Amino acid sequence: MTRILVRTLLLFLSALAIINYLNACGKNGEAKIVEKEENVLIPVEVAKVVQDDISAYITATSTLQAEEEAEVVAKTSGIVQQIFVEEGDRVTKGQILAKLEDEMLAIEVERARAELLKLEHSFKRDQELFEKNLISSEQFQNTRFQYEAQKAAFEKAKLNLEYAKIRAPISGVVAVRYIKTGNMVKINQPVFKIVDFDPILANIFVPETEINKVQIGQKAQLRFDATNSIVYEGYVQRISPIVDPSSGTVKVILYVENRDQKLKPGMFARVKLLYDTHQKTLLIPREAVITEDDITMVYTVQDSQAIRKPVKLGYSTEKMVEILQGLSKEDLVVVVGQNSLKDSSKVEIVNSTSLNLGQ
């Protein structure tokens, strides 16, 4: 009986020793895993906080319009005899664009001239007779009225002959030709359209809540898909004095120089209207900023450790964002890999050469 009790006690003590040994091994393994995890460095790319200028813009879209354009109309009727210009040709004010048949008009001028000479002779004769009291005042006035009426008819005939030459009312480019040789045109019928491409206008519509940021002469930048996104400069020429009640916007007219003639009426433009600039302010790349639980923050790197910092943002562009609070110049912010970080994570900077960090 005593031997059985001793054996049972030895088995119990052995089992207890094994359990204690296994527990000790487990704790050591976990400690090693934790230690290993703490030694893992997360690769990141960083950028320096820089100090530079940043501007704020009102953005809008627009369709270009010519400042001057004119529908050229026929001032007399007739058949088109000659056309001297084609679409795309540049013309100057007063240049002859086309000519109507004018033989009958020239004959009418000569007939009116002959009739005028006849009545002029009659007028001078009756004037002499009237001064000698040889004819009545009524007869002299009748002759004078006929002479004056014929003078007007002669001037009208000459004007109609001149109107057979269709001239450009403005300088610009022929945008549309509506007629062909041999066509019959009537008075006031459109025959050409002329557009002046320089300068050119862009109309934008600014929300009434932002119109106080717009002033006459304010600079604007315009980009066009058709010109490979070349930036054209413009400025605010006019601001409408009223608000459109249906849209809550105010019409703003931009003046855009177009000396190279590459901009055309009807082109679609993306407009940025500069209204403020912060100089020598802190800037970081947009991709460095993350938002968690409505808190805007970035990760900075100090001594191979990621530090999470809340920041206050200001103006932004397509690539950069202004930092009003939370960072200092020359701080390093994480721009790649920040989504894998948590506060105090160990990191390895993989773009130190390009940043000249000396690490």
Rank of each mutant, 00 (worst) to 15 (best):
T8V: 11
L16M: 11
C25N: 14
G29K: 15
P43T: 00
Q51G: 09
I54W: 09
A66M: 08
T76H: 06
S77Y: 08
G78C: 06
Q81T: 07
V85E: 11
E86L: 14
E86M: 10
G88Q: 09
I96Q: 14
I96V: 15
A106F: 05
H121N: 12
E128N: 13
Q139H: 10
N142C: 01
T143D: 08
A153W: 02
I170A: 08
V176G: 03
K180Y: 05
V185K: 04
F192G: 03
I194R: 05
N203A: 05
A220G: 10
L222T: 02
A226M: 09
A226C: 03
V231K: 13
R238E: 15
I239A: 10
P245K: 06
S247W: 00
I253F: 00
L254G: 06
N258Y: 02
D260Y: 00
D260N: 12
L263G: 08
T277N: 06
K280V: 01
E287R: 15
A288C: 08
V289K: 11
V301T: 04
D303E: 15
R308S: 13
K319A: 09
V334A: 04
V336A: 07
V336T: 13
Q338M: 03
S340H: 14
V347D: 06
S352V: 01
L355V: 03
Q359P: 02
